[in-house]
Write a protein that binds this DNA or RNA. Structure first.
Lengths: 138, 138
DNA sequence: CATGAATCTCCACTGTTGTGGAGACTTTAG
DNA sequence: CTAAAGTCTCCACAACAGTGGAGATTCATG
């Protein structure tokens, strides 16, 4: 049989190099419980499984979709319980769309208001008593 | 002549009551230099001029338009130098519109991506090896 | 005068996602 | 064996706009 060099786990620096994330961030994720280590070396170094790489990819993906680490953790908890987290993720992504729609709506209204103000802006208005900016009337 | 009870300045609680802002917030603004007090009473209490009310209105208004306290402070500095701050405010509001447009654009793209994902979502996909969520392929 | 309300300063904490550094320890390479 | 590199824990800080509380003073009212 071929020599087996598996299952010792990789140290955090290796995982950092392979994932492209800073060591600090990996420790941070581990502290949050997002990224469980399989254990510690004799000297107390964190050891990670290969699976951690997939996990980090998953986290990265959901982060780019705008989910918070807490929400991502929720999805991972389902996965860790042995289930497919697709249902949960679907729900989170729907919620995210709702949040985005709300934000876009609010931003649009604000934009409207700003445009309206600028449309009637007087570049050199008469100084009106007790008002800081006559254009805003406050 | 009628008795003159002016120009002693109001204490922070009065300003809070009249402006609708918490005392804490007024102190915070004063610390930032946004809201200068005209001085202190013998006992060390902050004293504010009537003008503070207009100032707070101005701050409130620009805040609702999305400017940061720092940007507002910039506008107030122009006012305090004796100039009309309309030009500065105009510039800030234009920048704010740009920021909003960028945000809306980014949110729209994200929304697109999310919609696309959900459009092809399989509610109960086959478990694919080594992938946390087959729908996301990660 | 005494009591309670108002105010003062100073410090800590909120939420989010990390980053930076100090000082100690372990591991690896030569 | 030694020096350098890697890793550990713990603490602090970043942005932003405040909020909460402790303990000390001052002010207003009866």
């Amino acid at each position: 049989m071929a020599a087996v060099s598996v299952n010792t786990g990789m140290k955090i620096g290796v995982l950092a190099g392979r994932s492209g994330l800073p060591v600090k961030t990996l420790r941070f994720y581990e502290d949050l419980g997002l990224l469980p280590a399989i254990g510690r070396s004799e000297g107390g170094y964190r050891l990670f499984a290969e699976e951690s790489l997939r996990r980090l990819e998953f986290i990265r993906r959901l982060k780019t979709l705008g989910l918070s680490l807490e929400e991502i953790q929720g999805c991972l908890a389902v996965h860790d319980a042995g289930d497919l987290p697709c249902g949960d993720i679907h729900l989170q992504l729907e919620r995210q769309i709702e949040r985005i729609d709300l934000q876009i709506r609010e931003l649009g209204e604000l934009r409207q208001e700003l445009q309206g103000l600028l449309a009637g802006w007087q570049s050199d208005p008469a100084k009106q008593g007790d008002v800081i900016c006559p254009n805003l009337r406050v």
